[in-house]
């Protein structure tokens, strides 16, 4: 599994209330998507394209348990690579099926707009412009399999533990 896409850069401590504002908590998934980063980067939601890659700083996704990772997945982003991912947000990436890696040095290795090649075979990230190849932290199988499968809900559905999505 490998993705090649244009990068969008975000800084350290990007919080869940920026990704998905509180006012959108009761919205539908489609309505929530329209609010992504409206407070810190208005208009971005119209610029991001399917297959793009988000580059994040330290402690990406700090804050609340809200389904902010689902909204990022719904933008069409192929995946994200951050210096580090907040523990709660990481759970939500796994469980909502949004591919996410942690990689030291990623935010200095990329300028916004650089093309990234992200491999989910060996968990490396390649900057096409500079030729730099960075090694991300490995993702344990049990978590990666859930992430790849689209999150935990399809798995629970297949086991007959929750109802199918309407």
């Amino acid at each position: 599994m490998e993705f090649t896409g244009k990068t969008w850069k975000f800084g350290d401590n990007i919080n869940t209330d920026l990704i998905l504002p509180g006012r959108a908590q009761l919205f539908t998934e489609a309505e929530q998507l329209r609010c992504v980063f409206e407070g810190n980067r208005p208009g971005w939601i119209d610029e991001v394209a399917s297959g793009d890659v988000l580059i994040g700083g330290h402690n990406f996704g700090m804050g609340s348990s809200r389904p902010a990772a689902r909204s990022l997945r719904n933008t069409g982003l192929a995946c994200m690579v951050a210096e580090s991912i907040n523990g709660l947000f990481y759970r939500n990436c796994v469980n909502w099926g949004f591919l996410a890696l942690e990689c030291d040095g990623i935010s200095t290795a990329f300028e916004e707009g650089d093309e990234a090649k992200v491999s989910f075979e060996d968990f490396t990230v390649n900057n096409s412009r500079t030729g730099d190849i960075l090694q991300s932290r490995l993702v344990p199988d049990i978590l990666f399999n859930t992430m790849k499968a689209g999150g935990v809900l399809p798995l629970l559905e297949a086991e007959g533990l929750i109802a199918a999505a309407e």
Binding site: S65, P67, L88, N95, L153
Partner: peptide
């Protein structure tokens, strides 16, 4: 005690277990 996401809760309620990364 840890805050989790909603899908975590579906998992914990139906299967009685969950996972944690140890820091």
């Amino acid at each position: 005690a840890r805050g989790t996401g909603a899908p975590d809760m579906f998992y914990a309620v139906t299967k009685g277990e969950t996972w944690f990364r140890v820091g």
